[in-house]
Design a protein around this nucleic acid. Structure first.
Length: 505
DNA sequence: GCAGCTTCGACTAAAGGGTT
DNA sequence: AACCCTTTAGTCGAAGCTGC
């Protein structure tokens, strides 16, 4: 390595900025290996590839030349002590380096392992089929209409009693519960009556209408920001009304996938309510056999809001049907007897689906991603109108176990065997194959006695302020360290860990 | 093979409340 | 009054998908 490198004096910032901007639009498409599961502040692969190659060259031209060279880091050992989802790990491996990767958070190292661990694809598919046989029929059964059609989403609303008159108040901020992302272009919208929960078709900008039971429905609901107005017009703070208890919720509508393949909105029926009640009973009966989330929220910057709302246990983030369905799914994965790597891949996939299947999610609308998942703002913000999705899912679902198996695991597998990279050409940024080595490796969780060999990675969950790395064993340290105390990922990652502790020992 | 629609996560603006 | 912070939701570009 040169004494003064391109990283210090001639970094190809202009080119990498163009490439990085392109990659940033859909990170998961360009870097599937590190996208099998949620992690926060994922860094751009192309930028880290640029950093790695600039660190071993003298000037911009040489750095850009190295950026195109699959084996430029061969013979070097790269260490990331705060590795997160593993961007450094993957980029270094793609350039032929030996890799050491630490992170204190077990969810982070789970994500890293999926990015490099070798999967036997037929074993992975066999494991997926076994899980499907064990739990799919039952999950499907509890997400359907009386006529047997699939329910993609159930819409829920939180309810609080007015502190003055104790009247129950449904905490809608608007009675439009579904509209297009571009409502001026597609003005049709779905409206709910806050009195009888009738579901109507209208316009996104309607002023007032009358439901089929004769109730007057206005566009705005009982809640504005943090203030609620009860049916008798008393105003109070929502948090005062909740008085430290997590809100009760009520189902008010569903999105059905009809036998004809078309989606339609419908009100909740007695059948829906009794099906849900049945799930509560089944959950109670099978409590001891099912994998369920354990533990309480730690007090911290990112959990404060949820705790103020009365959410103190991770289990409260899910309703009974979610606990039952996800519990069945997780138990099926726990009980698999298949290869360890393939089983862990499904555990990671399962954990990833949790982000879209809990009562902190909401409906984003039509014409855009349907589910606004719980971490879209890096905090745990309680939802007043949560969305309950079908966890197994259908091809028309977003964020379900079956769709993410395709879009996350299988896509990651393809990428790990033949990674692609972005190059800046005259016509723009172009995705290009053949510039990288496969990322697959055998994972060790202690420093190998014989030293690291190509094809082996040392990947460890632990505090990197003290390591067992021998002197002179590392050539490059490339990392994105914790940024002051700004975002407390561990507090958020506990949401996944509450389930994973029983799945990934 | 192509046009138009859907999907994804991230970015950004705006509203409104709280604080100094 | 000025400023800051929280909350809400509207918008975006690219890639994948669907139907012709």
């Amino acid at each position: 390595m040169p004494p003064v490198t391109a990283l210090e004096r001639d970094f190809p910032a202009a080119v990498l900025s163009r490439i990085g901007e392109h990659e940033s639009w859909r990170k998961e498409i360009h870097r599937p290996a590190t996208s099998t599961h949620k992690w926060w502040a994922k860094r751009l692969g192309s930028i880290f590839r640029g950093i790695l190659t600039a660190a071993v060259t003298e000037d911009e031209a040489a750095a850009l030349q190295a950026y195109r060279s699959a084996t430029r880091l061969r013979g070097l050992t790269v260490f990331d002590p705060f590795a997160g989802s593993g961007t450094t790990v993957v980029e270094a491996a793609k350039l032929g380096a030996r890799v050491v990767s630490w992170d204190i958070n077990p969810v982070a190292t789970l994500v890293q392992r999926q990015a490099v661990q070798r999967w036997d694809i037929s074993e992975l598919e066999r494991a997926y089929k076994l899980v499907e046989e064990r739990c799919r029929a039952e999950i499907d059964r509890v997400h359907r209409t009386e006529s047997g059609e699939t329910v993609l989403y159930y819409f829920w609303v939180a309810v609080a009693a007015c502190p003055v008159c104790h009247a129950d108040t449904r905490l809608f901020s608007t009675h439009v519960f579904s509209q297009n992302a571009y409502p001026k272009r597609v003005p049709a919208a779905r409206i709910v009556c806050p009195v009888c929960l009738d579901v109507m078709l209208g316009r996104y900008d309607f002023d007032e209408l009358t439901c089929r039971n004769g109730h007057r429905v206005t566009r705005s609901g009982a809640v504005t920001r943090s203030t609620m107005t009860c049916p008798d017009r008393h105003t109070s703070k929502v948090l005062d009304a909740l008085a430290g208890e997590a809100p009760r919720s009520e189902m008010y509508a569903k999105l059905v996938l009809g036998f004809n393949g078309k989606k339609r909105y419908e009100p909740i029926t007695e059948f829906d309510r009794s099906l849900y009640a049945e799930c509560s009973g089944l959950l109670q009966q099978q409590e001891s056999e099912l994998v369920l989330p354990l533990g309480e929220l730690d007090h911290g910057e990112n959990t404060r809001q949820a705790i103020r709302w009365g959410f103190t246990k991770w289990r409260q983030f899910f309703n009974d049907r979610q606990l039952y369905s996800l519990g069945l799914l997780a138990s099926a994965i726990r009980d698999l007897s298949v290869g360890a790597a393939e089983r862990e891949a499904l555990a990671a996939l399962f954990s990833g689906t949790l982000e879209f299947n809990n009562m902190f999610c909401s409906f984003k609308g039509e014409g855009t991603g349907a589910v606004r998942h719980m971490f879209s703002h890096h905090v745990l913000k309680p939802e007043r109108t949560p969305l309950e999705a079908h966890p197994w899912g259908t091809p028309a679902s977003s964020g379900s176990f079956s769709t993410l198996f395709q879009s996350r695991l299988l896509r990651a597998q393809v990428y790990k065997l033949a990674p692609t990279d972005q190059l800046l050409k005259a016509e723009g940024v172009v995705r290009t194959a053949g510039l990288s080595l496969p990322t697959e490796a055998t994972v060790a969780d202690v420093w190998p006695a014989a030293g690291l060999t190509p094809g082996t990675m040392y990947l460890r969950t632990g505090d990197s302020s003290r390591t067992d790395l021998p002197d002179e064993s590392i050539d490059l340290i490339v990392t994105d360290p914790p940024y002051m105390d700004n975002v407390h990922y561990s507090e958020l990652a506990d949401f996944f860990h509450a389930w994973l502790r029983e799945l990934v020992p």
